[in-house]
Design a protein around this nucleic acid. Structure first.
Lengths: 182, 182
DNA sequence: GTCTATACGTAGATAGAC
DNA sequence: GTCTATCTACGTATAGAC
């Protein structure tokens, strides 16, 4: 998947790399789609746990915005196949299972709550609801990450046309969302 | 492609829909990849012409930022397969031809120039280079559009979790980039 | 230009021996 | 649990008749 794209997952190749023949995989997964489902749940859970970790170890400060953006790009560079599977749905006909949707909902709730905390603490005043501010932030993160991944996946975090824009993105949000002094 | 994803393009199905048999397509295209190449060039050219149209019919004002964002989402909703092919590269092993890259470069130059004009006119002072401001704007547009397309492609422009955020995105940029009075 | 026939390869999945 | 053998289907591409 990492080498040829998420949709190129191939059971014979999977079997070869784990030292098996293709039919033996059916002992562990009932179908190819079931493997995608398991990977979706795995990827979503891994990403959510990283977000939880960031929220728990940061005070409600601008640093947390920077950390969230960096985390998204780090995750995408470390696990591009999981990032694409979870955030871009590149497999025609694949719909996440109920377990996967539950995991996705948990993540959304966590990030909404965290953004609301930033508003309540007085750090930011985005002029829109916390949910909308969060979705706008998600879009900015996803745009930067996806474009970095599509154009310069070989470059590490912080480098390249889009990878280097994390500080500029934080500065953009900070300039727009910092509460105005009365 | 629109129904099953860009990577699902199928020559037999293409032939069927144009009232032919698959081998007859080889009179017009030497290979399947050649069809992708032609579509890439077509999509890039169509998008570029729309951007040029917007630049020519708008003064350097905030209205042009709004129009560019709306245009990106409209284009993605009208031609999701071309949008994905051009902006997301979902076909493993497909690399745009020289003609396609030339078209892409033209588009980039046009948007850089337009952003520089906004800076020079005094409308915006992003605190970063016009190139960086343009790339950040592209990332924001692409994030909103991709997330709308991935989550709620059935909803028209202006509606849905991400589709409704265009005004908020313009407001974000406006709040951050409007020059400060001395 | 379009067709039929077919070569050639691949991929998911199943049957049944061990 | 793992294997070989095989089924079934699909998909790109070519050969050659019309």
């Amino acid at each position: 998947m990492r080498e040829d794209g998420v949709a190129a997952l191939n059971l014979q190749e999977v079997a070869r790399r784990v030292g098996m023949r293709a039919p033996s995989l059916y002992t562990y997964f009932p179908s190819k789609i079931a493997i995608y489902e398991a990977l979706f749940v795995l990827g979503m859970r891994m990403y959510r746990e990283r977000v939880e970790q960031i929220i728990q170890t940061h005070d409600p400060d601008w640093e947390i915005i920077h950390a969230a953006l960096t985390n998204q790009m780090e995750f995408a560079l470390e696990y591009p196949e999981l990032y694409q599977l979870v955030f871009q749905r590149p497999v025609p006909g694949f719909v996440p299972s109920a377990e996967g949707m539950e995991e996705a909902y948990k993540l959304l709730e966590i990030s909404y709550t965290s953004m609301a905390k930033l508003v309540d603490s007085g750090l930011i005043a985005p002029g829109i609801s916390a949910e909308q501010a969060n979705d706008l932030f998600i879009a900015l993160m996803d745009g930067l990450t996806a474009l970095h991944l599509a154009n310069e996946p070989h470059l590490p975090i912080g480098e390249g046309r889009f990878g280097s824009l994390i500080p500029a993105a934080v500065a953009l949000l900070r300039a727009a969302w910092t509460p105005k002094k009365p």
